[in-house]
């Protein structure tokens, strides 16, 4: 009986520490991943007219495989938890929706179908599964990274498709997303058509999305490797540096 009580107490305390670790890691990864995402690919995430078929499938995946790779490096190698990518992307989606709903929709009154975020959860689940099945981060980079880039556009297509329908507006051909863009004033938002989708991007018809996804997958593989290494050897480092006072006198003299 005595043993049971002690054991139960020890396990209860252990579980509490587990919860603190999980919750704090989740919250701070939302903070870091979201600030990273919104300032390297955020404009594509904020507005439906930016969610195009050329640049969005390139920019978003290659810049957002970063945190999942680094988190996988620690959660898999140290804890055998194949959830690093999904954990990060769930946090990112939570952070994005909190602001889209409360502020973009609730404060500045843009319709939600203009400001909904992209999702990386399907691609993240695949990335985690590849790591779990192969147990090898290099294979995960090569196979999972390719799939990460390839899967982004198809897994978001259900949400995007209606806004890519072509419409004629004041004699010009544009997408429904473009028309929504013209209907809602965004005083300080740079117009997507002016700064990004220029020249042949609009007129080079046919097959560009496949090429974009192919390119995106290639760069995603390349991005996965340094971010895994940074996760494993820098952010997941357990290094201590001694203070000057704690350093032995002999060592200070050299």
């Amino acid at each position: 009986m005595q043993y049971s009580q002690v054991d139960a107490e020890a396990r209860a305390i252990g579980r509490k520490f587990d919860l603190v670790v999980l919750l704090s890691t989740f919250l701070v990864l939302i903070a870091g991943f979201h600030v990273h995402q919104m300032l390297v690919a955020g404009d594509w995430s904020f507005w439906v007219d930016w969610k195009d078929r050329n640049w969005w499938p390139i920019v978003a995946p290659i810049l957002e495989i970063t945190f999942p790779a680094a988190t996988q490096a620690v959660l898999w190698t140290k804890f055998r938890m194949p959830i690093g990518a999904t954990f990060c992307c769930l946090g990112l989606l939570f952070g994005e929706w909190m602001n889209r709903y409360i502020n973009f929709y609730g404060w500045t009154h843009y319709p939600l179908n203009m400001v909904f975020p992209e999702t990386f959860i399907p691609a993240a689940v695949v990335l985690d599964i590849v790591l779990m099945l192969t147990g090898n981060w290099v294979v995960t980079a090569l196979v999972g990274g390719e799939l990460w880039g390839w899967l982004f556009y198809p897994t978001n297509w259900v949400m995007i498709a209606p806004y890519h329908l072509p419409v004629e507006y004041q004699g010009a051909l544009m997408s429904l997303a473009d028309v929504i863009n013209y209907m809602y004033v965004r005083t300080s938002t740079p117009e997507y058509l002016r700064i990004v989708e220029t020249g042949t991007m609009r007129s080079f018809a046919g097959g560009v999305t496949g090429v974009a996804a192919f390119f995106s997958a290639f760069v995603s593989v390349c991005m996965y490797v340094p971010w895994w290494l940074m996760g494993a050897y820098f952010f997941g480092s357990t290094k201590f540096f001694k203070t000057y006072e704690a350093t032995p006198v002999e060592a200070r003299q050299h």
């Binding site: 704090s24 903070a31 600030v35 919104m38 904020f46 502020n103 973009f104 404060w107």
Partner: peptide, 22 residues
């Protein structure tokens, strides 16, 4: 700390985007 970091770096930072782009 991590809650405060979430509020600052995630919530209020994207809220700043809401404001500036408007």
């Amino acid at each position: 700390y991590t809650y405060a970091a979430y509020a600052g770096a995630s919530y209020f930072t994207e809220q700043d985007g809401t404001w500036h782009q408007t």
